[in-house]
Amino acid sequence: MFSNFDFGVIIRALPYLFYEGMTFTLLLTGLAALGGLVFGTAIALMRLSGYKILGRIAGVYVDFMRSLPLVLVIFWFYFLVPYIGQWVTGASRPISVGAFASSLITFIMFEAAYFSEIMRAGIQSISRGQPAAANALGLTYAQTMRYVVLPQAFRNMLPVLITQTIVLFQDTSLVYVLSITDFLGAASKVAQRDGRLVEMYLFAAIVYFTISCIASFGVRRLQARIAIIR
């Protein structure tokens, strides 16, 4: 059944697929996960802070982001930000934001909403006695969070955080709407140039599947290890 297929096209395209495509995908995944974690933690702390207004702002943000399809956010953000930038800076033309910067900011904003909910659950999983003990020793709120609560919350939530990052890794393929050359974008370009759609999309699927599978397996190993330490 594969007699009509030319798998050589994949081998010829490998350098392009991985040097251009996969590098972009991994870079976007890594930076978005990092940024999402930092901002997500900040949002989680806002939601858990005693200040009602901060909590409301964070809550509205999270609900807003989670109620929109990611593809739409990517799309809108890319086309809107230049105009918002123009409006903010008062420039005469729309500000040009590169496709990478635009997609990275979008993913950070979007993932922050999801990571914040994970971190919130993680922080709430720490018994109230822990911050009380830290406070009783004279640690300030910031020190209590940094040295006592967040390290534990992060550790408890590590498997979930990595799982979310695997989802993010797959979701980065959505940047195709901006015609960016991520891994899928690169595969798609080669496929259309050479008219080898089935081979290239099959290969792309196998690559995403393999990487996600290995990462998931790693998470299970990690979970087992953490379970022993605790």
Binding site: S127, G129, Q130, A132, A133, A134, N135, A136, L137, G138, L139, T140, Y147, V148, P151, Q152, R155, R230
Partner: peptide, 29 residues
């Protein structure tokens, strides 16, 4: 925080920091 640092407190459920070694529990504050 300054006042609390001069008032030692021991809790019913110990509340040691589980992610830190014993000596680090003593050193942190």
């Amino acid at each position: 925080p300054k006042l609390r640092s001069r008032v030692g407190m021991v809790f019913q459920h110990f509340e040691l920091f589980p992610h830190l070694k014993i000596i680090d529990n003593l050193c942190l504050a």
